[in-house]
């Protein structure tokens, strides 16, 4: 099940970004983690059946589990709301995420 690898990549990258100092990178990281969580929710419906859960389509025996899909749909939209809120916070005030430091070779991170 190679999707697990995809999830692994997304969670690792997301964690890395969330732990960065820049708010915008943290927001991006949260985006990656939510992609991962969405995929986890979807595969919890067992990805052996991948037909569309639309009952007018013929083969219901192959249809995927619709409940995780409904959850993920909700999750995607809430992620959008959270992302917007966090981006709105990222541009408040004049902090060092916005004012660029001169490249002196110093470490500004800690």
């Amino acid at each position: 099940m190679i999707i697990i690898f995809t999830i692994f990549v997304l969670v690792s990258g997301g964690t890395f970004l969330v732990l960065q100092r820049s708010m915008v990178r943290a927001v991006f990281g949260l985006g990656l983690i939510s992609h991962a969580v969405n995929l986890i929710l979807l595969v919890s419906g067992v990805p052996a059946w991948r037909g569309e859960p639309i009952t007018s389509e013929a083969d219901l025996a192959r249809a995927a589990d619709p409940l995780p899909q409904a959850f993920v749909l909700t999750a995607i939209v809430i992620t959008l709301a959270v992302t917007i809120l966090m981006l709105a916070l990222a541009v408040i005030g004049h902090n060092d995420d916005q004012v660029r430091h001169p490249e002196t070779g110093e470490d500004h991170d800690s």
Partner: peptide
């Protein structure tokens, strides 16, 4: 990936 998992609604929203 979502589309390939058989979730057209979700894929469209995404």
């Amino acid at each position: 990936q979502i589309l390939s998992l058989g979730a057209p609604d979700v894929a469209m929203t995404q």
